[in-house]
């Protein structure tokens, strides 16, 4: 019983963390797949949204759903502005310029957050309905973690259905597959990219808010988790929702186990595994776009 509970606890905790990772990273995967833009600043949008969500709840006493909605739309709006005025100029530039530009953005976000809010970590006060324990039969586990896993699954399902069943999803898949071909078929790739960029940033914001409770939220957030976002996206495969979902969940569980049992340097196995996977499948587990 005890062992079962422990294993279940680890798996659930890992899945919850992986879910957050997925919600943050999925937008990055799609935008990178669409435009080949190396956007290291994606985590900055997650942080920005996370701050909106946490601050509106803690200081303005908004409810959780309202705060999440505000975080989503606020961050999406900001990302559209940045995309129109800055990102757009670098679509045809080399990776190096994109890397440099987005590292610059990260610094600006970090400094801006420190100046406006302060460098201390923010904590998320969960609503009472989510803060207890849930009886799952074999184990009792934190309601919030279960909530995250369910929400994450629904989001993954929703995005996947959007990709597979809707017109815009079809356009995104076509463009990820072959941008030139898509353009010649009359798909407005620029507009498509703006939309997915905004949506992806909004999702990152939600991820930032949902994860604030256990990932923490402080100005260093975009750098602290950068490697994890990138691993989820590159291992999952650019432009692949399902691939990123699996990669994020595996990464979440693996990280949970390793930090629990090998707090010193255990993450080495994550890096080793990532290297092996990328060497075997340079385009990630799900294949996806040829680079």
């Amino acid at each position: 019983m005890n062992a079962v509970a422990e294993i279940a606890g680890i798996v659930l905790g890992g899945l919850a963390a992986g879910t957050v990772l997925f919600i943050v990273s999925v937008g990055l995967s799609v935008t990178m797949g669409l435009m080949g833009f190396v956007n290291l600043a994606h985590g900055a949008f997650a942080m920005f949204g996370g701050y909106i969500i946490v601050l509106t709840m803690n200081r303005a006493q908004y409810g959780f759903p309202a705060a999440l909605a505000l975080g989503f739309f606020g961050t999406a709006a900001l990302s559209v502005v940045l995309e129109r005025f800055l990102y757009r100029r670098l679509y045809r530039a080399g990776e190096l310029d994109q890397v440099l530009f987005t590292i610059g953005l990260i610094f600006i976000f970090i400094a801006g957050t420190t100046i406006v809010v302060g460098s201390e970590a923010q904590s998320l006060q969960l609503p009472p309905s989510l803060s207890g324990q849930l009886n799952l039969g074999i184990v009792h586990y934190r309601t919030y973690s279960i909530f995250l896993i369910v929400i994450g699954f629904l989001i993954a399902l929703g995005i996947w259905l959007t990709f597979e069943r809707t017109r815009i999803g079809g356009q995104i898949r076509a463009t990820v597959d072959n941008r030139r071909m898509a353009e010649s078929l009359g798909i407005n790739v620029d507009r498509l990219f703006t939309i997915t960029f905004a949506f992806g940033s909004g999702m990152a914001a939600i991820g930032g808010g949902l994860g604030a409770e256990f990932l923490g939220l402080d100005p260093q957030y975009p750098l602290a988790y950068l490697v994890y976002f990138l691993i989820a996206v590159s291992v999952g495969g650019l432009g692949s929702v399902i691939g990123v979902y699996y990669a994020a969940l595996i990464l979440g569980v693996l990280n949970f186990v390793l930090t629990l049992y090998m707090p010193k340097g255990g993450t080495i196995f994550i890096y080793a595994l990532t290297i092996l996977i990328l060497l075997a499948r340079p385009r990630g587990l799900s294949g996806g776009k040829e680079q």
């Binding site: 190396v38 990776e95 590159s234 890096y271 340079p282 680079q291």
Partner: peptide
């Protein structure tokens, strides 16, 4: 042998390793 994002990730992970 790789390029682009994959190479970025591989160099990054080698260092982290």
């Amino acid at each position: 042998r790789t390029r682009g994002l994959t190479l970025l990730m591989l160099t990054l992970c080698t260092m982290a390793l």
